[in-house]
């Protein structure tokens, strides 16, 4: 009947399907950009090399520290202090403690999160143990510092901010470490 005209329509529909397959993957960068812009997910923290001249403000907010270890990682991990009062615009150090009670070295990776998510947009870090993977030798305990400040333009309604870390086992790094260890053994 309308033989030739099917081709045109079918091509368009196939293109739509392929486009939507791509859209599924495009969600990944789009989601990240959206979260960075809005702070949703509490991952909008800025990282700077050095803080520069800071405008210190009289306003103080309470910062709470939370520490979690993923069940795949046999470490003990906690914040040195539960909470602290911080002046806006003031460079501050927070310390976490991590311990590997096991008999072998393990590579871990900390992932952070700020609550309320909106506050993450005003949270600036200059240094953090979460920037790189962390190796703890057998029975090693280590202090892990974070240097951060809160921008003075933090919205008035935010009185309390929680900084939370979860330590995960870094599977790929552990595989590499294990392979290296075996090579050293065999030498």
């Amino acid at each position: 009947m309308n033989g030739p005209s099917h081709g045109k329509l079918v091509r368009k529909l196939v293109l739509l399907a392929v486009g939507m397959f791509g859209f599924g993957f495009a969600m990944w960068p789009l989601y990240n950009v959206f979260c960075d812009l809005t702070g949703l997910g509490g991952r909008g923290v800025k990282v700077v090399e050095s803080a520069g001249e800071l405008q210190k403000s009289d306003r103080q907010v309470k910062i709470r520290f939370d520490a979690t270890v993923n069940s795949g990682l046999p470490w003990i991990f906690e914040a040195k202090e539960k909470s602290t009062m911080v002046s806006l615009g003031e460079m501050t150090e927070a310390t976490y403690m991590a311990m590997n009670p096991g008999n072998e070295a393990i590579v871990g990776q900390a992932i952070y999160n700020v609550t309320p998510p909106e506050a993450s947009l005003y949270f600036v870090k200059t240094e953090c143990f979460c920037f790189t993977e962390q190796v703890l030798q057998a029975n090693e305990t280590r202090e892990m510092p974070v240097y951060y400040f809160i921008q003075p333009d933090l919205p008035e309604h935010i009185k309390e901010i929680t900084l939370s870390y979860t330590f995960f086992r870094n599977e790929s790094a552990n595989a590499v470490a294990l392979a290296t260890a075996r090579e050293t053994d065999s030498e």
Partner: peptide, 28 residues
């Protein structure tokens, strides 16, 4: 046509997370 490809994308990402070491959904 609009949503089945999106599911295909989602399960493909699960597949690569599971077997090929990507981290689309892997928090670590």
């Amino acid at each position: 046509i609009a949503v089945m490809p999106v599911l295909a994308g989602a399960v493909t990402m699960l597949l690569t997370d599971h077997f090929f070491g990507t981290s689309f959904f892997n928090a670590a």
